[in-house]
Amino acid sequence: MKHPSEEPRLPAPRGPLSAAVEDHLRGTGPLPPDEEIAAAPVYGDDLQLALYLCYELHYRGFAGVAPELEWDPELLRVRGALERRFLAALRADARRHDRLDDALAGILVEPVDGTGVSHFLRDKGELWHLREYAAQRSLYHLKEADPHAWVLPRLWGRAKAGMAAVEFDEYGGGRAERVHARLFADLMTDLGLDTAYGRYLDAAHAELLVTVNLMSLFGLHRSLRGALVGHFATVEITSSPGSRRLAEAMRRTGAGPAAVHFYDEHVEADAVHEQVVRQDVIGGLLEVEPHLEADIAFGVDATVFVEDRLGDRLLSDWTAGRSSLRTPLTQEFTHTS
């Protein structure tokens, strides 16, 4: 794992919006005009990368970009315009449940004949599929639990205590070698991938960027704390059975012990997290802020929507025998089993 303070390079722009944001970050050009933001496809590569660049300043920043730009008013104004389009699209496109129990019911049932990405990888996944999957997911897993930590000051009582306990577990329970982001870096090493933060940003399609932007959007806005909690619950509820299938895929392909361990750990950990999030975090939040029920349900529905889009994208590429990446992986593959 490379030294964590090493900032990633700016990625290649994907259109006028992301190019203009990058020019602004380098101090060489103007930000995009409102008409351009209004005209860009909302789930497209250009808009989603532009938003991703804005958000990344709140995590690790970029090499050669002044860290103070995190709070640059002009950039925040553009980020706000991008976010309003993104949020409006999610509210319009995600399936809508008014009652939280209805939203959760759909993800608390295990399909007998599932057809998702984890089912594909368990049954038919080859090492190259697993490497592509890990490279893309690294955009989140190398900062696993970070977007959710922002919600802590916006909760109190039972919800705060439960959320902090789950986050403590995500961060290794006080042990650096057990931090989940570190466990994922170890998985990447088993798969012969580069563990440097941000290394695979260029490789990831818009569908993946959307899933990470969703967490940052919900995490950075107190007004969306209910949606963040709903999002987090969805991740924890769906993770355990999905992780079991991914652990099976890693075992079957001989991906390596750390690759297997990452998903084995998530089978058990997230079975606990699910209970704590549902009982303490959601239960505690609704006790003090019952008006947030629809927002929590929206967080669930929006997460299901963006994850389904990503799954469709990956499976349409893989079942056609194509790579799911924008740029090919270099062969750093060293593990042999």
């Binding site: 608390l108 049932v109 007998v112 079991r244 058990e268 079975a271 699910e274």
Partner: peptide
């Protein structure tokens, strides 16, 4: 559970 005695969410309804 396949990881008994630890829960692995196998109690969930299947459909």
């Amino acid at each position: 559970s396949r990881r008994y005695p630890w829960c692995d969410t196998s109690h969930r309804d299947r459909a």
